[in-house]
Design a protein around this nucleic acid. Structure first.
Length: 519
RNA sequence: GGUCCGUUCGUCUAGGGGUUAGGACAGUAGAUUUUCAUUCUACCAACAGGGGUUCGAUUCCCCUACGGACUACCA
């Protein structure tokens, strides 16, 4: 029988999720939805020292904002079938599995102190051992249940001597597994060390907890970052020793997201140093050294639409093989396949995210943009009708990258010019132009047709009477009405402003500029 | 250092033994807009290097270089 597809995203609550983590969650989600499976989230908080308050909630909100929904997680109203979904809450379960390995001879107790471990590494390094590690060779010189007499081990245990449980990795063995993205990966066991499975505080390490939980939670595909590739052989070994090989999940190690500037993988610490957000949501943290509060910007607060952010992120390391660039989440679900994830790492492109945002912003219905505008303007104490807001939104959206640009561009409708573009004035403003505009202002209130076309017709009419070409006045007219040399279509602006307001602005400009000239 | 992974335009990438090596973003130029932006059109621009294999390699193999990850009682 085919197993139901079950994937998981398993972050540690050690800080804000960065975009690489979001992408991992996204690919997991896409595969689950595509294959009609389940998407779960498990909090991997086995390291109490690195716990950061608020991080878990941040992860939750980030995924919510992105539209990545979870079928099983610590946050559901009724506990899921494999609850709890926080490893710290699962702590009591792990020891029995470590015990199983102990019993079958695949794990052993180690009593070495940190100092002894340091000394061992120092010794090996000094001896120019190419790969200093606790392994099949060096464990013979250490204090563990393999080297110590049985009764001494028992005594140490009885005396509550701190110990860890280590995996007994075989000396000579080829470990291989088929990665969905990379193909066959082969690693020799001699390069894998005797990893700690249970820490002296009674908590499992990532490696143990991860394998046990993935098995218990019936995970079928492990999709995670490439940083886990080197420890995958260890995980394969664990599945084998537990006797779970037949249901071992398929692995897919995603290429890393690189820093756009220098080198190395993108990390949480990059924060705003790069000039663009690396976090989905704004994060309020503390400086590691000084403890000073810090703020790292987020895509959401910077004005990115989740659809754009997701579309962009999906394309960083994956593509559909067609020329389509714009994908909604549903499109992504329909098209996604793990085989089309690329092997090589990707660098960030700010221009491309901006472009995506423009695309999605413009695709939004004017009514929705108008609603945003209404809210933004209200905050500034400006009241507008829904109808007018929609007209403005429609006019202005082609010039916007972010929603906030809409409000910025809309300002000219609610604030009369306080100054006039000097270059245009000095070049284009003269008595004749002023006269013509005065005539236009005079004719405006009487017009029956205040559509952009109607206003243009009126303007043309007035100018013809004056014997002036439209080209001579248009720039001056724009500056008189808006104060600025550039902006949206002038006829549309005047239409939205209305004949009355336009006329008043014109008269104001004529007065002010005349006063300026005589001063 | 060791192990593993990777390498096509500036960036994200398509392709794959025989192609004018395709698209998108960015950039440049032109057209439209008597403004800016938008839009449209065009241009610019890449198979890391060296050996094989082959009639023929950017594609397959090997080596080198470069980049990256990992190398904790962190995940």
């Amino acid at each position: 029988m085919e197993r139901e597809v079950r994937v998981r995203f398993a972050p540690s609550p050690t800080g804000p999720l960065h975009i690489g983590g979001v992408r991992t969650a996204l690919y997991n989600y896409l595969l689950a939805r595509k294959l009609g499976g389940k998407m779960l989230l498990r909090i991997e908080d086995t390291d109490q020292n690195r716990f950061v308050p608020g991080a878990e909630d941040y992860i939750r909100q980030s995924l919510e904002w992105c539209g990545i929904t979870l079928d099983e997680s610590p946050w559901t109203e009724t506990p899921g079938p494999h609850a709890p979904y926080r490893q710290s809450e699962r702590k009591p379960m792990y020891l029995q599995y470590a015990q199983q390995l102990l019993d079958s001879g695949h794990a052993y107790y180690a009593f070495d102190t940190p100092e002894e471990l340091d000394a061992m590494r120092a010794r090996l390094t000094a001896a120019k051992v190419p790969n200093p590690q606790y392994n099949s060779i060096t464990r013979a010189q250490m204090r563990n249940s393999l080297t110590l007499p049985e009764d001494e081990v028992k005594q140490l245990l009885d005396n509550n001597t701190p110990y860890v449980i280590r995996l007994k990795v075989p000396r000579k063995e080829e470990i291989r597994f088929n990665d969905l993205i990379r193909g066959w990966v082969v690693v020799h066991s001699s390069s894998v060390d005797d990893k700690v499975l249970m820490k002296s505080d009674g908590m499992p390490t990532y490696h143990l907890a991860n394998i046990v939980d993935d098995h218990l939670m019936e995970i079928t595909h492990v999709i995670r970052g490439e940083e886990w590739l080197p420890s995958a052989p260890l995980h394969v070994l664990l599945y084998r020793y537990f006797g779970w090989e037949s249901t071992m999940p398929q692995f897919a190690h995603l290429p890393l997201l690189l820093k756009p500037d220098g080198t190395g993988k993108l990390s949480k610490r990059d924060g705003d140093r790069l000039g663009f957000p690396v976090f989905p949501l704004e994060w309020h943290g503390k400086d590691a050294e000084t403890g000073e509060p810090t703020v790292s910007s987020g895509y959401r607060e910077s004005g990115y639409l989740p659809e754009a952010f997701i579309n962009f992120l999906a394309f960083l390391g994956w593509n559909p093989g067609t020329q389509q660039e714009l994908f909604t989440m549903d499109d992504l679900i329909a098209t996604f396949s793990i085989e089309r994830v690329s092997k090589s790492p990707a660098r960030f492109d700010q221009n491309k995210v901006r472009w995506y945002n423009e695309q999605y912003l413009r695709a939004k219905p004017d009514s929705e943009l108008a609603q945003y505008l209404l809210d933004a303007l209200k905050e500034q104490g400006v009241e507008v009708s829904a109808n007018k807001a929609e007209q403005i939104a429609a006019l202005v959206k082609e010039r916007a990258t972010f929603p906030a640009d809409l409000a910025k561009e809309a300002q000219l409708f609610f604030h009369r010019p306080t100054s006039y573009d000097e270059q245009v004035i000095s070049k284009k403003w003269n008595a004749q132009v002023a006269g013509a505009l005065q005539e236009f202002a005079l004719a405006l209130p009487a017009t029956a047709d205040s559509t952009p076309e109607g206003i243009k017709a009126l303007l043309t009419q007035v100018l013809e009477r004056q014997g002036i070409k439209i080209g001579q006045v248009l720039q001056a007219l724009r500056v008189a009405v808006t104060g600025a040399a550039a902006g949206p279509d002038l006829m549309a602006i005047m239409s939205i402003l209305g004949p009355e307001e336009t006329a008043q602005r014109l008269n104001l400009a004529i007065d002010q500029l005349a006063a300026q000239a005589s001063a």
